[in-house]
Design a protein around this nucleic acid. Structure first.
Length: 490
RNA sequence: GCCCCCAUCGUCUAGUGGCCUAGGACACAGCCCUUUCAAGGCUGCGGCGGGGAUUCGAAUUCCCCUGGGGGCACCA
């Protein structure tokens, strides 16, 4: 842990990081990436990963969202060592520290109403000026203050921001970033109802929880100088910061619901594997040599903030899908078989029709064809209900010259009960049939495929026939023949 | 409007002054394998945003421009 030996670092302490989502919706892909990087950083350094719920927005925070986030974190395997802590459970601490700031003159009460503020903000914008609080309440006399209180006005607490000086951040991923304090205004620390706002609460929390490294999204970079000023005013030790670039949609704007699924939950429901999502997310902003596929242990072992890039990354769902396919193929047949069932069931297919042996076989023949577990339903639905002949398959394959004859011969060959109904003997019989007709294999096999599956695309034919079983296969062959006879083909 | 960040193939990235005629992965195209679709193998297509400067030598350092992103709430 040599890299802890840096100025402002923590020479002897262990790494303590946190993920601090606000429970206002789902766990967003971007949030998951932030959580992952924090988790990897903690695990790599043998540190502590803390989960903290930032629920000071009473309007938007919900219990439901907290559960959704926790469920998603667990599903991803991002286990935390402390928490979940909730800011709403820490109100007395914020009050205590706010009082200290008030007493030392580093904060003041402000009686301006939201309406007044909004009006002045608009006016400033109209004058093409930068909206900034004019600090009028900072110089309120005791008498004026009392008058406001008498009118029933509830004050907010504002942080008195120094108007000179420069605040410099030595960001672990961005490098040195500096801000002029003069550009910062006296932001609201505590609302009129006594609940702290983000920029204030986050400082007290990170201090109280002994956070050594604040790893979070880029969108917080411009908040950081305000927070550093609070750290200083409170006499706290300043942690290290590492700001991760945003994840963008294909149109290069910040990834949002407009771009499709952004909730981790949605990926789970479509049949993405946690290992694949983790692997993909790790690569969004981080890289290690030429490697693409990393298992969890490798990620922990190789992860470091030095490897994190500064530029934003576009979320590429195509690559994620490919990667998920890679992970599906790495699953054992047994594991895959077990995972497939819920997806088939959810698609309304009668999963109880078959036994475990059958599902293992199904997994075997479909594993190379799945990108998402959810694909299994479409790929294998014909096993579960009677054939639905797809018009384009009928047109392109079945209506070809000589097809009824091929199907009749197939029916005959497979009606022979002197062999076990497994793919190998089935293949032997059908290849013999190909010999007999003198046709190219595909001219025989394609019609059979369409006849038994209803489509021109399916898993491998002989295995498919085996899984369908003799009875259903013969029935479907017969149905196809009848269909063609009725249509006048013979 | 003000402040901040970013800039290598379409996308994710390797690259930290010479090893780069810029490497890998996804996607795309072609070929091979093949009963379809996949998977797999091979080949190809494709990039250092522009302009200055430093240097014997810049993708790599500095400046400007351009482009993109983020922030400027009693949201986080």
């Amino acid at each position: 842990m040599a890299q802890l030996d840096r100025p402002g670092g923590y020479m002897d302490g262990i790494v303590r990081v946190r993920f601090a989502p606000s429970p206002t919706g789902y766990l967003h892909i971007g949030g998951a990436r932030t959580a992952l990087f924090n988790w990897l950083y903690a695990r790599h350094h043998g540190g502590v990963f803390i989960l903290r719920i930032e629920d000071t927005d009473r309007e938007r925070s919900t219990e439901e969202a907290i559960n959704v986030i926790i469920t998603a974190m667990r599903w991803l395997g991002l286990d935390w060592d402390e928490g979940p802590f909730r800011q709403m459970g820490r109100l007395p601490r914020y009050e205590e520290e706010a009082r200290r700031l008030l007493e030392t003159g580093k904060a003041y009460k402000c009686y301006c109403t939201p309406e007044e503020l909004e009006e002045r903000r608009k006016a400033a914008l109209a004058r093409k000026e930068t909206p900034k609080y004019d600090r009028r309440c900072a110089s309120l006399s005791e008498a004026e203050r009392l008058a406001c209180e008498k009118k029933g006005l509830k004050p907010v607490i504002r942080f008195l921001c120094p108007d000179e000086g420069t605040t410099i951040i030595n960001d672990l991923v961005k490098g040195e970033v500096s801000f002029e304090n003069a550009n910062l205004d006296d932001f609201i620390m505590v609302r009129a109802d006594g609940i702290p706002t983000y920029n204030y609460a986050v400082v007290v929390d990170d201090h109280d929880m002994d956070i050594t490294h604040v790893i979070r999204g880029d969108d917080h970079l411009s908040n950081t100088p305000r927070q550093i000023l609070v750290y200083q005013a409170l006499g706290y030790k300043i942690p290290e910061f590492g700001h991760l670039s945003m994840i963008l949609g294909p149109d290069k704007t910040r990834l949002s619901k407009r771009h499709g699924a952004t909730a981790v939950e949605a990926y789970r429901d479509e049949g993405y594997l946690p290992a694949a999502l983790i692997n993909y997310l790790a690569l969004l902003g981080w890289g290690f040599e030429d490697q693409t596929i990393f298992d969890r242990q490798e990620l922990i072992q190789k992860f470091g903030l030095e490897g994190v890039g500064k530029s934003p990354a576009v979320f590429d769902s195509t690559k994620l899908a490919w990667m998920n396919g890679v992970y599906i193929r790495e699953l054992s047949v047994h594991e895959l078989a077990g995972m497939m069932k819920p997806f088939l069931q959810r698609a309304g297919l009668a999963v109880e029709m078959y036994d475990d042996t059958w599902y293992n076989r199904l997994a075997e023949i479909t594993r190379e064809r799945l990108e998402k577990l959810g694909d299994i339903a479409e790929l294998s639905s014909f096993f579960f209900h009677r054939v639905e002949y797809r018009p384009e398959a009928v047109e392109k394959v079945l209506k070809k010259e000589g097809v009824p004859d091929i199907l009749r011969k197939t029916l005959e060959a497979l009606s022979d009960t002197s062999f076990e109904f497994y793919s190998e003997p089935i293949e032997k019989r059908l290849r013999a049939l190909v010999e007999e007709t003198g046709l190219k294999a595909k001219f025989v096999f394609q019609p059979i495929r369409v006849a038994v599956t209803g489509r021109n695309i399916s898993p491998p034919l002989f295995e498919t026939i085996e899984l369908l079983g003799r009875e259903a296969t013969l029935e479907r062959l017969g149905e196809a023949i009848r269909l063609l006879e009725m249509a006048g083909n013979s």
